[in-house]
Design a protein around this nucleic acid. Structure first.
Length: 289
DNA sequence: TTGTGTTTTATTGCCTCC
DNA sequence: GGAGGCAATAAAACACAA
């Protein structure tokens, strides 16, 4: 380590020591500071000091206030300002430097606490959004199931009462596929089959939007992606998984190379996390809001 | 008064920059 | 290599309950 002489030495370039003590000559409690040059080594006061080292003293309120104001304007201390402050406050430059150093440390700690609180708040909001999405997903699934059953029933009744009527081959195939899926409780595939019907029958505007979107994109395979999990994940795991795998690919805007959309544009559902390339390390964006 | 927790002042060792 | 910054830490000063 570079040799630093302390007891306030070393700041002004020379090897100086300083001691602070109460001004007992006039009985006041104010501090004044005395410096000892090397040539003072024979001095009685210095000798006294060596044998009765002073305890550290707190700065006075007005000194602290002055330093605080100075810190507000600039939290780093250039040598000129340090000398200036030391003169104005009757302190050693070294004390000023130490005060600024400690003050910066306190500021940093506070800042970390603030950042932590912000992160905590954002996490809570994300979690709430996630839970809402789960709920909405459940609602939509039951609605699709309900409508599918209705449709099947309708078609069955129609089929028995009108067995002689002619159907196009594609209509027949569609009915068969749907019946298969529903018998196998494969709701996801059933939704592919009935999606066109759902558009016309759904009472949910959101559902209509979604199914129309499906038709436009020609792919509904992501609609029930959550269902593809093995069910062994707990809620926290699903929440984490969502960051890497969007709940529904078509519902969320396509994200490429960290080009994030505005939150409002995706109804605050986009969570700011993405994995843009299988071979690349996942990168996580973050929007505090 | 005293024990205890918190805050402030100061030191130490390491690191970076010039 | 010196100057100065930072993290970790010591220790004095302070606050406060019992």
């Amino acid at each position: 380590m570079a040799a630093r002489s302390f007891l306030y030495g070393g700041d002004s370039g020379g090897s100086r020591s300083m001691v602070s003590f109460e001004d007992k000559r006039n009985g006041s409690s104010s501090l004044f500071f005395r410096t000892f040059d090397q040539e003072d080594n024979g001095d009685d006061e210095y000798d006294d000091y060596l044998h009765h080292p002073e305890k550290k003293r707190r700065l006075k309120a007005d000194q602290v206030q002055f330093l605080e104001k100075s810190f507000e304007t600039e939290n780093k201390l250039e040598p000129e300002r340090k000398i200036q402050l030391a003169k104005e406050l009757g302190l050693q430059p070294r004390q000023i430097a130490i005060w600024f150093q400690n003050r910066r440390a306190r500021w940093k700690t506070k800042q970390l606490e603030k950042d932590y609180d912000l992160l905590q708040e954002s996490y809570n909001q994300l979690k709430a959004n996630y839970e809402n999405l789960l709920q909405e997903n459940e609602n939509l699934k039951s609605e699709v199931l309900d409508l599918s059953e209705k449709l099947l029933l309708q078609e069955t009744v129609k089929g028995t009462s009108d067995s002689s009527s002619t159907k196009s081959p594609s209509e027949s195939l569609q009915q068969e596929q749907m019946a298969d899926c529903l018998n196998n409780e494969d709701v996801s595939n059933a939704s592919n089959v009935v999606v066109k019907t759902v558009v016309s029958e759904s009472t949910s505007p959101r559902c209509v939007d979604m199914t129309q979107s499906l038709l436009e994109h020609g792919d509904s395979s992501n609609l029930f992606e959550q269902d593809q999990s093995d069910g062994s994940l707990d809620e926290e795991d699903n929440f984490g998984k969502m960051f890497a795998t969007p709940v529904s690919g078509y519902m969320l805007p396509k994200i490429e190379n960290g080009d994030y959309p505005e939150l409002d544009a995706v109804n605050s559902c986009y969570l700011g996390f993405h994995d843009h390339d299988d071979n690349e390390e996942q990168s996580f964006g973050f929007w505090p809001y």
